[in-house]
Design a protein around this nucleic acid. Structure first.
Length: 589
RNA sequence: GCGCCCGUAGCUCAGUUGGAUAGAGUGUUGGCCUCCGAAGCCAAAGGUCAGAGGUUCGAAUCCUCUCGGGCGCACCA
């Protein structure tokens, strides 16, 4: 439909160029848009205003010329000039009818297209440290990433979803040490748990499992651990150093346990938490094609190779015993350490290796979805890509802002380390998966968001999730009624009688549902699933209005079949849209 | 101090990349079930788009500054 209007304008413009009224070679991309108001017709175009200068006449004058050269079209009722020079197109009602047939024919495939041309894209998201359960902050990234993946794949990209598992760093050592200390507690050792350790109860659960498997084989006395050479932990009065304290305990664990036993605890913790995360996300409808381990980068030499590449390109230098990347030459605000004085590589080094690896795997482009607190290292990733001669546009970073939880007016605090955070699992349990997925993507991702638990759980108040699901369920209910009345729906006859749909509510609903595939594309190419959310709300509204105004199951069979075609198409669009959002389209509620 | 995100109705947010009279939900007020599901519909009221300049036919949108909020600024991850 939209394409048809575009074709008409293009044809007219070519005519004008051939007759010399427009200069050759100006290639303004013609933008045909849905009108904001029905009184402006169905589609509008601003090309006359844009090209007025080049044509050396007023916008309205040019608009008139364009109108004069429009080729005839059976779908067009009229086209007129409005305001400063808009071209407004009024279409025959029949122009919308094809959409109904298309939807009913394509069913759950309706809305798919080949915009992405099969290009391979890697979407990395969540990637939370496996040091504890996911909390509500991770939930937004999970919902957004999964939904974005759905949209990209719907418009023809080959999407690879990936979770980067930070299984190699200091945080994991802190976890392993925390587990070990809890284990010793279980055996009756008098340990003083470090402030900087992981406090959550899940650590005790892992310790218990280890005790079950290993008995007291990993036991060492508290006296042997808390020796005088360990720096004191942070005290109430502010003295001491919690970082130095925990680092010393890690060293102690490694030496006392030996490499193999330490690795056992480390792995036990990692596996337990990763399994928990995997299950949590699975229940949330978030699946990954790959869980990419940071450790494999070191084991497979990717990390060394990456560092060598930067070295070879001459973008590194040594200072104070460390190896640095000259990031400032590529737009970053400071240079970054790759290898520390103690010989250990930094997180940034493995990130370089990881992103190099992504592109080595043959992806056309990659998308990183980070929490907003990570925005600081977008420039440094782009910096090393530039340093190695890669096009930084091949990596797009989307920052997801935090969600602030409210219960009614009360703001819920979230402190992670203390263990008093709200987990994603708790949230899902309280509000349900559908509402959680919906609320997370309801807002633009870079928008700060208030997540009101009370609103999300309300079934009586106006909850947007239920509002849309209700529209779907209502249509299903109509078809149940039809069966109860021993009536059937003749789809073919309905399609042939769509001209009987002359009610104003039918007009509006038809117009609304015809936008569906445009909305899928807009959501995908802008990386903004919330566009779909707002559309579905709007579509549901038109359905409810129609429902209140007209009876669908009427005696007049052709009219009845036509109306059932219309609402059946609406049901399909609602179902497809909800599926992309990861929300279920229920048949009754 | 420097950088990133943001500021739109009482509240929560849209505004399709510069278009027409700035829109929804919620809240407030008033209507609508003998009828396919009232978790619904309709109507009214509600605005200096944080503020000030600038760019042009035209700005909530782009540029500069100011104010206000969130988040970053490690040889941590």
């Amino acid at each position: 439909m939209k394409k048809h209007v575009e074709a008409l304008i293009t044809s007219s413009l070519e005519q004008l160029q051939n007759t010399g009224k427009l200069p050759q070679g100006i290639e303004a991309n013609i933008k045909v848009e849905r009108t904001k108001d029905r009184k402006f017709g169905d589609f509008s175009c601003n090309v006359a205003m844009i090209l007025a200068k080049a044509a050396q006449c007023s916008p309205r004058e040019l608009a008139q010329s364009i109108l004069d050269h429009l080729p005839p079209s059976s779908q067009l009722v009229k086209a007129e000039i409005a305001g400063p020079g808009f071209l407004n197109f009024f279409l025959e009602a029949e122009a919308y009818h094809d959409v109904i047939g298309d939807i009913l024919k394509a069913k759950e495939k309706y809305g798919q297209c080949n915009l992405g041309q099969g290009k391979k894209v890697l979407v990395e998201f969540v990637s939370a440290n496996p040091t504890g359960p996911l909390h509500v902050g991770h939930g937004r990234g999970a919902a957004y990433g999964a939904t974005l993946g759905n949209f990209l794949s719907e418009v023809g990209y080959r999407v690879h979803r990936e979770y980067y598992v930070n299984d190699a760093g200091r945080q994991m050592d802190i976890l392993a040490t925390s587990v070990w200390l809890r284990y010793l507690e279980l055996l009756g050792e008098k340990v003083i748990f470090p402030r900087n350790g992981y406090q959550g109860d899940y650590v005790k659960d892992i310790a218990q499992q280890i005790q079950k498997n290993k008995g007291n084989a990993l036991r060492h006395s508290a006296d042997a651990i808390f020796t005088p050479d360990i720096p004191t932990d942070l005290q109430e009065d502010g003295s001491g150093d919690k970082e130095a304290h925990v680092d010393a305990l890690i060293q102690k664990a490694k030496t006392l346990l030996g490499a193999s036993d330490y690795a056992y605890i480390h792995l036990q913790g990692l596996n337990d938490i990763l399994n928990d995360i995997r299950q949590d996300l699975g229940e949330f409808g978030v699946e990954f094609d790959e869980w990419f381990s940071e450790r494999t980068l070191t084991q497979s030499n990717h990390l060394d190779k990456a560092i060598q590449q930067l070295k070879a390109a001459g973008h590194t230098f040594e200072e104070k015993g460390a190896l640095w990347f000259r990031a400032t030459e590529f737009g970053d605000e400071k240079d970054r350490v790759l290898v520390r004085e103690n010989g250990q590589h930094t997180y940034f080094a493995s990130d370089v290796a990881y992103h190099l690896n992504k592109f080595d795997r043959g992806f056309d482009f990659a998308i990183d979805i980070f929490g907003a607190d990570h925005h600081g290292y977008v420039p440094r990733i782009h910096a090393f890509m530039k340093a190695l001669g890669m096009d930084p546009n091949r990596l797009q970073v989307h920052l997801v802002q935090f969600a602030i939880l409210y219960r009614g007016k009360e703001r819920l605090s979230m402190s992670t380390r203390s263990g008093s955070f709200v987990t994603l699992r708790e949230l899902r349990k309280e509000v349900g998966n559908d509402a959680a997925r919906f609320f997370y993507v309801m807002r633009k991702c870079e928008q700060h968001m208030d997540f009101d638990l009370e609103l999300a759980t309300s079934k009586t108040n106006d909850n947007p999730v239920y509002y849309i699901q209700y529209a779907h369920a209502r249509i299903c209910s109509v078809f149940r009624q039809l069966a109860e009345k021993q009536l059937t729906w003749d789809e073919q006859q309905g399609l042939q009688n769509l001209t009987t749909l002359t009610q104003p509510q039918e007009d509006l609903l038809l117009e609304s549902v015809s936008r569906y595939s445009e909305i899928v594309q807009a959501s995908a190419i802008n990386y903004e699933p919330h566009i779909m959310v707002h559309f579905l709300r709007d579509l549901a509204n038109h359905l409810h209005t129609y429902y209140n105004a007209c009876q669908f199951i009427v005696d007049d069979a052709p009219l009845r079949d036509a109306r059932l075609c219309l609402i059946s198409a609406v049901r399909q669009a609602l179902a497809n849209g909800l599926r992309l959002l990861g929300v279920s389209a229920v048949e009754s509620m």
